[in-house]
């Protein structure tokens, strides 16, 4: 058991490592925004005041400084996170969080192809039945009920058409009915 435990910890990222990686990542993002800001004037434009790029440039410079401070504090072990050897995302959490994010990714990708309503059906069915392990009554009533509610709310009441992609023709009869 002890061996197994040790092995598990080896493969999981500690909070300390995550803090380091995040500090580096935020520094890189800051530098990228600084560089991107210089596409526009970051100096003083006569008659117009500070150039368009100045505000984001100095803000991202501040981001870089703040990230650097986090990195320095990491080396000094000044923050609780930089001392913590606990697992950043424990395996059990990784499962439920990972599967949720995965399902959401699927929902968005599927929306591009089969439209949001059919993507919602698949998403809800998968989540309720396989992640939540709910009974058929709960699964089916919500799988059907939620998209119907969304349709009534957005298309009908708010008249905001949601993306339907190739499923669009299937909705023509309903449009005739409600508009």
């Amino acid at each position: 058991m002890a061996v197994h435990r040790g092995k598990q910890q080896e493969t999981e990222m500690t909070v300390r490592t995550a803090e380091f990686v995040m500090a580096i990542a935020t520094m890189l993002i800051s530098i990228a925004i600084m560089w991107k800001s210089t596409e526009l004037s970051i100096g003083w434009v006569p008659q117009k005041g500070p150039g368009s790029g100045a505000w984001p440039f100095w803000l991202s410079t501040g981001m870089l400084l703040a990230s650097t401070a986090t990195l320095v504090r990491w080396f000094l072990r000044a923050t609780p996170e930089s001392r913590s050897e606990e697992s950043y995302i424990p395996r059990t959490a990784l499962y439920v969080v990972g599967i949720s994010v995965g399902a959401l990714l699927f929902l968005l990708i599927a929306t591009n192809f089969i439209g949001i309503y059919f993507a919602l059906l698949l998403f809800l069915f998968f989540y309720l039945r396989f992640v939540g392990r709910h009974g058929w009554t709960a699964t089916l009533s919500l799988t059907i009920g939620v998209p119907v509610f969304i349709f009534c709310m957005f298309e009908w009441a708010l008249t905001i058409p949601l993306p339907k992609a190739i499923s669009e023709p299937l909705f023509y009869p309903i449009y005739d009915l409600i508009y």
């Binding site: 949720s100 399902a103 959401l104 929902l107 968005l108 949001i116 919602l120 998403f123 809800l124 989540y127 309720l128 992640v131 939540g132 392990r133 709910h134 709960a138 919500l142 939620v146 969304i150 957005f154 949601l162 993306p163």
Partner: peptide, 16 residues
């Protein structure tokens, strides 16, 4: 696990 997918759905359409 009943509430979470409903919230996710509301987030997606609310973001759109």
């Amino acid at each position: 696990t009943i509430l979470a997918p409903i919230i996710f759905v509301l987030c997606v359409v609310g973001g759109y």
